[in-house]
Design a protein around this nucleic acid. Structure first.
Ligand SMILES: [Mn+2]
Ligand SMILES: [Mn+2]
Ligand SMILES: [Mn+2]
Ligand SMILES: [Mn+2]
Lengths: 220, 220
DNA sequence: GAATGGTTTTAGGGTTGTCTAAAAATATAT
DNA sequence: ATATATTTTTAGACAACCCTAAAACCATTC
């Protein structure tokens, strides 16, 4: 049974998530940015993960995660999301406070703990940021989602997730009244800077920059 | 702000607990036994803990924990016990399953997490094994407790805690029907091997070896 | 007070994970 | 196709933690 250290679990989670975005091989630099380490440290780690066969590693050509690696990554992601649900639903944390704590909790090893936690939470399907929670077998029921900035005028939809989990971004969303589940309609798009105006819940309008819109995910 | 690693937190917790028992300086060998490491590793760690001033370390003469060190140890112990209560009360773990998981959870750093958890659990004063939970300020309301084997014939009392937290021991107690809160009376003591017979809850009698009795703590 | 036994520390080494600086490989631009 | 820029890897070092083997120390006993 391959055993992974905390650092290896973190790298693998990052690699999985980066590979979900790009679909291509994941680059050393991107991993370094995501992990807030230096590329030299990443190279070192990739060699080790390659030896453990959780990634396929061709020097200078980025990495691909293996099926085995995906299993590990999804297990960590599942734990991360379940703990986030626990913190918000049971301990009354707000959604901008949970990520850092879940980054620690996601490494707790007990299998039965996660099963019981899942049950205790009522088998949630999505975390507080709208991300789908993989089930016990690593199956993820992904919904088709689109960044808000890619919608066209008069398009409608529902906010189902956020891309950026930073406290600053989530607090900003709280302030302007954008939340998971809100129904939105695009009223205007500004050519010049990509900023847009949307109607929220048929009640109020909201201006936002392209950067903000790009981090809000919509299901149409 | 002194920052401690997981290993340092574990050593400090062990040193605190050993010093509570003996009242004297704690020996390198005892720490090694408790931590399941080698004396050489302990010496190394003691030097580091001494530099961080959480213990007073005189080579060859054992260690004493400082006030600062006590604070850290009690913080870890508080977290350990609170997580055990969570696992038993909320996630339906049995008392023999929680120690290993709590040994991991006790290192999670968020202060607000522990405050919220404490509140969520209803500010429990004792953990599932009867150990008092230090409050936010490190205050422990210790009850006077006596190992069952030190009671005399006809002495009465109540089981308030267990010394051994191993799964094997706790499962044995479950099997024979000894539990925290049970009222007991000593019916007989065998000179030869120190084994005793007790009456539990005025309902049934129970024989046990001296080893078992020594790990059951009584409040009279 | 010297020998002995047990305890503790030191010496030296291995693993994991990080870093900086330099070298090597790849990608891009003319 | 060659020069230049960018990315990635390697080399060498360091911190944390653990180990085994050997040396140093302490407490007893004769
Ligand atoms: Mn998160
Ligand atoms: Mn999340
Ligand atoms: Mn415990
Ligand atoms: Mn306990």
């Amino acid at each position: 049974m391959t055993n992974l250290t905390y650092a290896e679990e973190n790298y693998l989670k990052a690699i999985y998530q980066l590979s979900e975005e790009g679909k291509k091989g994941v680059s050393t630099n991107d991993i370094a940015a995501e992990m807030k380490t230096k590329p030299a440290s990443v190279s070192d780690m990739l060699r080790k993960l390659g030896e453990k066969e959780v990634i396929e590693y061709r020097k200078y050509y980025g990495v691909h995660i293996t099926e085995e690696g995906k299993k590990f990554a999804l297990r960590t992601i599942r734990k991360h999301h379940l703990w986030e649900v626990f913190l918000v639903d049971k301990l009354k944390f707000s959604w901008d406070e949970v990520n850092a704590v879940a980054d620690e909790l996601q490494h707790i090893k007990s299998k039965i703990l996660i099963q019981r936690l899942d049950e205790y939470l009522g088998f949630p399907k999505f975390d507080p940021h709208g991300d789908p929670i993989p089930d016990e077998y690593g199956d993820v029921r992904a919904r088709p989602r689109l960044p808000l900035n890619e919608l066209s005028i008069l398009d409608t939809g529902q906010i189902v997730a956020v891309k950026d989990n930073s406290s600053a971004f989530l607090k900003y969303l709280d302030k302007v009244g954008a939340y998971i589940g809100a129904r939105i309609k695009v009223l205007e798009k500004v050519e010049f800077d990509g900023s847009i105006e949307i109607m929220v819940d048929n009640k109020k309008t909201l201006f936002m920059s392209k950067e903000v819109a790009a981090n809000i995910l919509i299901m149409q």
